[in-house]
């Protein structure tokens, strides 16, 4: 087990480098450079800037310079003097992480609960109610849901502040907005998974033992029913991370996603490269954690 985890961790490294290379190539191949927009820059200064950011060197040398800058976080921003990639991640990633984890917690809690209710009370008003709500949750884009929630709960009822990021009460609306679609998706997955398991032979065996419905569900059905949800957690992480980009824009949350879009629009290549690479590494580690969780839930599966 420990050996497999180590092997997988080591395997992540070349993938992250590869992804960084692809991103870098994309940036380099795109017509126009980072300083093209500022036409007022005299050629002399432009040349100095290019030298500072290794833009005048061969492709692989440049890439190596960026990569080593990424490794220790010292890669400087092209557009904001004094800011490095490491600095940006240190200050704004915790915000995005908090937002993402809160959204995930909300999604898992409500989604799993709604899914189990839907499965155990199949074809009742409870089932139809939760599943209709789930379909609405999937169908309403979060950038529609966000403003609507703000309109109702912040501007209308005044329960929560409409924007900013200064304490728990400001985190509620962003987290719900980000998590809603995943809650809905998880609810559907849980319901489908539980329904399949509930019909299986071993659940019948458990009933034949005289266990109560609660014991049957908790001990015998739950693990199997939640496996599809665990499989979904990997892609969900990826989408929640990209989702923070939108939420941070709506609620003016100073997270990494917000700065990432700004950097992309500003053509701040070093920042873009830094954030993409960082997120890729985070995601791959998360996926590894999900796989480990899976082997714990299903003893038949081994980590490869």
């Amino acid at each position: 087990m420990i050996g497999s985890v180590l092997r997988r961790l080591i395997g992540i490294l070349p993938l992250v480098v590869l992804l960084a290379l692809v991103t870098f190539a994309m940036l380099k191949l795109a017509p126009g450079g980072p300083f093209d927009a500022e036409r007022s820059i005299p050629p002399e200064i432009a040349r100095q800037l290019e030298a500072k950011f290794h833009l005048d060197e061969p492709f692989l040398t440049q890439f190596w310079a960026y990569l080593s800058g990424l490794a220790d976080g010292s890669l400087p921003s092209m557009k904001r003097p004094g800011l490095t990639v490491g600095e940006l991640i240190r200050t704004s990633f915790p915000v995005s992480l908090t937002l993402g984890l809160l959204a995930m917690a909300f999604a898992l809690l409500t989604g799993v609960l709604a899914g189990i209710i839907g499965a155990l009370r199949q074809n009742t008003i409870w089932d139809y109610g939760t599943m209709s709500l789930a379909l609405i949750g999937i169908s309403v884009p979060n950038f529609v849901l966000g403003p609507v929630l703000v309109l109702i709960f912040a501007l209308g009822l005044g329960w929560f502040p409409p924007a900013r990021w200064e304490g728990l009460s400001t985190m509620v609306l962003p987290a719900i907005t980000l998590g809603a679609a995943y809650a809905a998706y998880i609810a559907r997955l849980t319901r489908a998974g539980m329904l399949e398991v509930i019909r299986s032979d071993f659940v019948r065996t458990a009933h034949a033992k005289g266990l109560s419905e609660r014991q049957v569900v908790m001990r015998h059905a739950m693990k199997g029913g939640l496996l599809p949800v665990v499989t979904f957690l990997g892609p969900a992480m990826a989408r929640i991370i990209t989702g923070t980009v939108v939420i941070e824009k709506i609620f003016q949350v100073p997270g990494l996603g917000y700065y990432f879009v700004q950097s992309a629009l500003d053509r701040d290549y070093s920042m873009v490269l830094g954030v993409v690479t960082f997120y890729a590494a985070i995601l791959m580690v998360m996926n590894l954690l999900v796989d480990i969780a899976y082997t714990y839930l299903d003893p038949r599966v081994e980590l490869t």
Partner: peptide, 10 residues
Amino acid sequence: STPYLLLVIV
């Protein structure tokens, strides 16, 4: 497992 939408944004 890559944050592909980030790449699309780029």
